[in-house]
Simulated assay, not measured.
Amino acid sequence: MAEPDPEPVRRRRYDPERRDRIIDACLQVIGEVGVAGASTRRIAAAADVPLGSITYHFADVDELLRVAFERFARRVSDRFEEYMARATTVEQARQAVVDMITADPLVDPRELVLTHELYTLAARDPAYRELTHAWMARSRHAFERHFDPTTARVLDALVEGLTIHAALDTEPRDPRDLARAVEVVTSTTWPTRD
């Protein structure tokens, strides 16, 4: 009697970029439906991976969220750095700030959702607050290429607020108004701390 053919051996698909795809898919899904709607099933489908891949690469959903938001914050900070690195004068630095607000407030409209979802998490959870603190520190560091630390801190808050307003306002902003606001903040002599 002949022996039956052995079962074919199922080999794991070599997929070295799977973890990165999961992280990017997580950001995509959060940008579309928020953290509350970002189920692991939905993230796995967006990444085109089996559901078990998420638990293989991440201890839990919170780890995936933290890693994804770290990537998001780094990308935004890198853009700040790129804008400020191109400027060689204070005037160019001021214009770079205006450009960040007007030309690049939301490269992807989902970034507004991602930003607000991260802020909401940071308001509740110290681990996310550390992440937003590091994000703000990187932004301020980029501004400190051209401005003193206090001005950089105030400028960071101004950019954050103006970016949110530009994204949510139903009427376009006049870039000249933004330029004046940036000039006022960067021309002000702030009191030194004792």
Rank of each mutant, 00 (worst) to 15 (best):
A59V: 12
T132G: 05
V185C: 07
W135R: 14
M100S: 03
I30T: 13
A38Q: 02
E171W: 05
A45Y: 03
T89M: 04
H133W: 13
A85D: 08
W190D: 02
M1V: 09
I23L: 12
D125E: 04
V49H: 03
T40M: 14
P4V: 15
T115D: 07
R153W: 14
F58Q: 02
G37S: 04
I30D: 03
D60Y: 13
A96F: 10
E82V: 13
G37W: 02
S77E: 03
D48V: 08
V107W: 02
V29K: 09
V184D: 00
A134H: 07
F143C: 04
T189D: 05
A87W: 14
A2G: 11
I54V: 03
R79N: 02
R180G: 05
M100W: 10
E160G: 11
L155K: 06
T55P: 00
R11H: 15
D156Q: 06
A127M: 10
T88V: 04
I30H: 08
R180A: 15
A157S: 14
Y128S: 10
V9Y: 15
L106T: 09
E183S: 06
E130R: 13
F69K: 11
E17Y: 09
E130Y: 08
M136I: 13
A179P: 04
R13E: 00
R18Y: 00
Q92I: 00
H141N: 04
E111M: 08
D174Q: 05
G37C: 13
A127Q: 03
T89E: 10
A134I: 01
T55A: 08
I30S: 07
A127T: 10
I164C: 00
D15W: 13
A137M: 02
A122V: 14
D78L: 04
H146Q: 09
M136H: 12
Q95K: 10
R145A: 10
A179F: 12
F80N: 07
R10I: 14
A157H: 07
Q28L: 12
P8G: 11
A45T: 15
G34C: 07
E70V: 04
D24F: 14
R145S: 06
M84C: 09
A2F: 15
S39F: 12
T150C: 08
H141L: 03
S39T: 15
D62Q: 08
G161P: 06
E70L: 13
E63I: 01
A157V: 07
S77C: 11
V90Y: 12
P50W: 12
D20T: 15
R110M: 11
F72W: 12
L162E: 00
P191R: 11
L106S: 00
T151Y: 06
D156P: 01
R42E: 06
I23R: 14
S39N: 01
W190N: 03
H57C: 03
D15L: 07
L114H: 13
G31Q: 02
D15C: 06
V107F: 07
E117G: 08
H165W: 10
T170V: 05
D194K: 02
R129G: 10
L114E: 05
T120Q: 15
G31L: 03
R75H: 01
L51V: 07
A59W: 07
T188Y: 14
P6C: 09
D20V: 12
I23A: 11
T151R: 03
A59F: 08
D48T: 15
R18C: 11
Y128D: 01
R153C: 02
G52M: 01
F147T: 06
R13H: 09
D60E: 01
R75Y: 09
